[in-house]
Amino acid sequence: MNAKKLIEENNLKRERLTPENEAYYSNLLLYIRLQFSLSEQQSEEVLMELLDHLLDGQKAGQTAVDIFGDNPKGFADELIEQLPKEEKRQLIPYFGGIIGTIIGWFLIIRGFLFLLLSPFTEVKTMVYPLSSICIALVIAGFVICTIVLILKLIKRSLFKEKDNTTKSSILAGVVAALGMAVVLLVAKFMPEIGPAFDFSWWASILGGGVVLLIRYGSKKFNSM
């Protein structure tokens, strides 16, 4: 059974837990799933085993604390230490796929926007690749920093008696707003440097479509 199937089954089975056991198990599950360097398949397999064990124990009147102990973080760390790492081969297509999807949709939306706006206003279809790459890097940096921060905040909030959700949300919001401001400023004041070419609306849609098709095709191919 692959990881995706295991996750689906896990979602269904988790509903059979008592609220108390569900809270304990969900912390464990989130904490282990947030370790992106670990093999997803192996992580999901052990999570399923723990869930099955907990459900069996629940029938016999045991609680999660009885079975896994009163130190869930320590228990999770022991599991993480023994779980094998994800192979790099599988990470590269994963991130490549995400970036491809973003670029594909960006190009298509850009194309349609230009098509719709051009009757009303003059749109600049000239593209300066060097400037565009600089802006893209700033955006990527912003996105990565924000995601890392949010994941850190989530990880820190697990296994805590009282949640500091409000404080964490405000912190994440402020950082995201500041980052967005930086991105907008850079985009506005980035000088137009290097060579340029005309990138019309139809070329944009075509380019985006091709990228998405390749992405879709390789996904199909990989899952065969």
Partner: peptide, 11 residues
Amino acid sequence: SEGTIYPILLR
């Protein structure tokens, strides 16, 4: 403790 078998099984 029942949970301790899982890190052992993984190892």
